[in-house]
């Protein structure tokens, strides 16, 4: 198989069948290092399935996935994360009954190899506090450090999720609809945050909000019915006739 040389993450012939139904069909994808790459498409296009396949939360029926030159098609999801491909979820993924501080510390703990010590005091984790507080401040949650994550409003949960993800300092971040269900204010804040953290990293995101996509993303892949319809920068993709037909439907503008 041949992958583009400057791609940090590639998929070839990616296919996922559920009981004969092809949710994802023969998808080729190259994510270039250092870009923000969007996956867009109408509901049911298979965006989230592609996400789950890339991070191995689902096993592809066919196809291969290469990350930094390494075939990760047979790698387990936790090990994919350890390689530096860290994802978020469509429904905000926090640890609800841990404090904001502890949410971030869980992630830092893994990186610091402090996960398995069952015979030592958890005061050992206090050495992670400064780093954790820095991350919490970076996403604007400093005033909430002592609160349970469950108490946070939705937009702030997403911010916490991003702080937790950043704690792993991953070269590649995958965000599944980071703006879903957010108000205008939150969208602005999370957009800024993503732009800020994308420096020196690669970001892949599924996103419905086209303003956000045009604003943030360097490259856009359009999926429809599990297949790639078009790929390019936002201008190219949005002027593509097939995309307009499939994605924007009745819209004429």
């Amino acid at each position: 198989m041949s992958t583009s040389a400057d791609a940090i993450l590639s998929a070839r012939g990616l296919t996922k069948e559920f009981f004969g139904f092809k949710a994802v069909n023969n998808v080729d994808l190259d994510v270039r290092e250092g870009t923000i790459h969007a996956l867009i498409g109408p509901n049911g296009a298979g965006k989230t399935t592609v996400f789950n396949l890339l991070t191995k939360f689902l096993t592809p029926t066919e196809g291969r996935i290469v990350f930094r030159g390494k075939d990760i098609t047979g790698v387990k999801p936790a090990d994919v994360a350890r390689l530096g491909l860290v994802r978020s979820f469509q429904i905000s993924a926090v640890f609800p009954h841990l404090t904001v501080l502890d949410n971030v510390r869980v992630a830092l703990q893994r990186k610091a190899h402090l996960g398995t010590q069952f015979w030592r005091s958890n005061r050992l984790l206090d050495r992670l506090n400064d780093e954790a507080h820095d991350l919490i401040e970076a996403v604007g949650l400093a005033a909430f450090a002592a609160h349970d994550a469950a108490e946070l409003p939705y937009g702030r949960k997403r911010a916490l999720e991003i702080a937790t993800t950043l704690a792993l300092d991953p070269p590649v971040l995958l965000f599944d609809e980071p703006m879903a269900g957010m108000g205008v204010e939150d969208i602005g804040r999370i957009s800024d945050l993503i732009r800020r953290i994308a420096k020196g990293r690669t970001v892949v995101m599924v996103e419905h909000n086209l303003n956000v996509v045009s604003d943030l993303c360097d490259r856009v892949t359009v999926l429809a019915r599990g297949e790639i319809l078009a790929e390019g920068d936002y201008e190219e993709v949005s002027s593509n006739a097939r995309v307009r037909e499939a994605y924007m439907g009745s819209e004429d503008g």
Partner: peptide, 27 residues
Amino acid sequence: RIVHSPYGHVLQAIRENENRAISLGYR
């Protein structure tokens, strides 16, 4: 001791949200 250890901290995270714990790289 186990509950209040670094390991116990991870266990509670797994209890709270298993998929998220996986996505942070925990086996």
